[in-house]
Design a protein around this nucleic acid. Sequence first.
DNA 1: TATTTTTGTGTGTGCGCACACGAAATGTGT
DNA 2: ACACATTTCGTGTGCGCACACACAAAAATA
Lengths: 350, 350
Amino acid sequence: MKTIKEIAQEANVSEGTVDRVLHNRGGVSKKTEEKVRAIIKEYNFSVNPVASALALKNKFNIAVLIPAHNKSDLFWKSPNLGITKAAEDIKTFGTQVQTLTYNQQKPESYINTFHELLKSNPSAFIIAPSFSEETRNIVAILDDKKIPYLFLNIEIEGFNNLSFVGQDSFTAGYIAAKLMLSKTTESSEFLIIQSRKNITNNNAVFKRIEGFTNYFVKNEIPCKILTLEIESQDSKTLRKTKINTYLNNHPDIKGVFVPSSRIHMLVDCMADTYLKTLELIGFDNTPQNIECLKNNSVSFLISQKPFNQGYNAVKLMNDYLVKNNIPSHKIYLPIDILIKENVIYNENSY
Amino acid sequence: MKTIKEIAQEANVSEGTVDRVLHNRGGVSKKTEEKVRAIIKEYNFSVNPVASALALKNKFNIAVLIPAHNKSDLFWKSPNLGITKAAEDIKTFGTQVQTLTYNQQKPESYINTFHELLKSNPSAFIIAPSFSEETRNIVAILDDKKIPYLFLNIEIEGFNNLSFVGQDSFTAGYIAAKLMLSKTTESSEFLIIQSRKNITNNNAVFKRIEGFTNYFVKNEIPCKILTLEIESQDSKTLRKTKINTYLNNHPDIKGVFVPSSRIHMLVDCMADTYLKTLELIGFDNTPQNIECLKNNSVSFLISQKPFNQGYNAVKLMNDYLVKNNIPSHKIYLPIDILIKENVIYNENSY
DNA sequence: TATTTTTGTGTGTGCGCACACGAAATGTGT
DNA sequence: ACACATTTCGTGTGCGCACACACAAAAATA
């Protein structure tokens, strides 16, 4: 394998000049450039990627801003693991990754954590934008400082984000509806359960609901779709009565759709008779949700490749920083359909 | 990331001593060795593989032996893409990847291509062992030369392979049966179509069939399962008559299971009436198969993450060569359930 | 022609590690 | 006490590249 040094000798120029030609840095006379290019071509030369990687070290640091996970909502653990794994992989490029988490219930936490990250002057940001309004302010700062940023998991429009990595939530909801109907008769009612906060704030949840209802419209299925709002601060007893009385009052309900990762909480609240008769469909293969799949209370989970979301986002950003690869504007990861039998092969990300 | 230099400072020794400890070169007093080891452990230190590769002028090369793809069977294109992508990623470690493909119909081709690869003295092999018997001979050579190897996509037992990367074919078949029944009534007959060659030679196909039939046994579903053998060398007209007469003679058949990636060929042969009434389930999201999903002739495809199979296999082997990471003996990738609606997000690997 | 600006080119240093070489510390025998 | 062997340890160099810096030649300006 030729080296830059050898190419330089061959062309009677210095290594620096070859370097300039190779990286299109400019400042090389036309004549010498041509000469160097000819020799590069002649030997089909390309730089030693090992040496290159070593020399490029310690240049960039990526800041990651995502929600925290806790016992009742483990979802974000998995993207976090993906991020950590990617961080490990790109250490060889000297890229550092700093991840901080915020409280998904508190917009202030989102803002504060962002500013905390900003202190270390990151070369780029990866953000899960749970709060649409607050994101506007955050992004204004980044745009001003010309710091590139990418959205993770939650898709919002109208920003200069480098890319989005996540799921097509609309279609995911659409698929949920299709799966729901594959198991039930046509003349039924269906119930969507979700907190008000999520419906208005969380764009992914909103789109899933849109997709779900759209399936009925598009296929002209005359089923009634009801909505029940359960707030996250409600006590368990309150939730229980709310849900069970609602189901009791609507005996035609044949299936329940939960457009978030918290379906296990509802399973926890529902009376056994409902668990046996109703079709339940929810999102994300968190350990608790998997348990619901295994004990037959939930029929399907739709998973959004949480691990890969984190992993890909970080690698994408690194490729952008290090190699100047511009990613596609939207990267939709597969919509996984999980059932009792295949869920174990998707478990390892928690 | 810590460096040897930093570890040395911390331990009040020279870099040389740390190097000696790291590589068990000996010539270090017990006391200092312990001190150094303690600090290495404390920081969970490991050498920068890139710098290491540069200093060593590492020249690992991984040989990859997989089936070729052609217009009628595109399956292997996708693992190949994954392999190429991984090859790009691991260039930074100085590892080269050489991929050669063989004719899946001809065992000689398998053997010959193997020997072709062997010529360049590879540090390791990645093999898709389509032919069980021939693999025995191949592996004997590798064992003799102490060249590590791992199996890709097709799982066979009784070898010293470093690892296996692929799918749990039995469960995949099991899931196919479950999906089949979600769409049909209980008192039906089902048909498995496959070539004799594949059933006896290709272990993945064999296991899928096992899993499929096992579902009926385990759940005590009294359906009759029939098998029709179609040889790949049969002409299209012959296939057409074979299939359609068979279906005609067995009017109770409600679903057809094709345990290979060639379901599109059967769709091509089946009369329209059958396409409309029968449930078809096959494997792999090749472009032709996706087309069948989109035009509603096929209900489900089961996908085995072909791209990731290739990608992971190569990266795993590289980690083994470069960092001495020993992988798990079996790495089962997710069993993807594909339907019309989510298939587009799995399309990009072809 | 003298002086400033622009353009073109070479040199030096560091990235983190592997390994050769040589120096110091310790041990052995007389 | 000495000379000498052996064990233990530190230093220096190179792997190939990226990039900052210095410097010379050419062009532009006065």
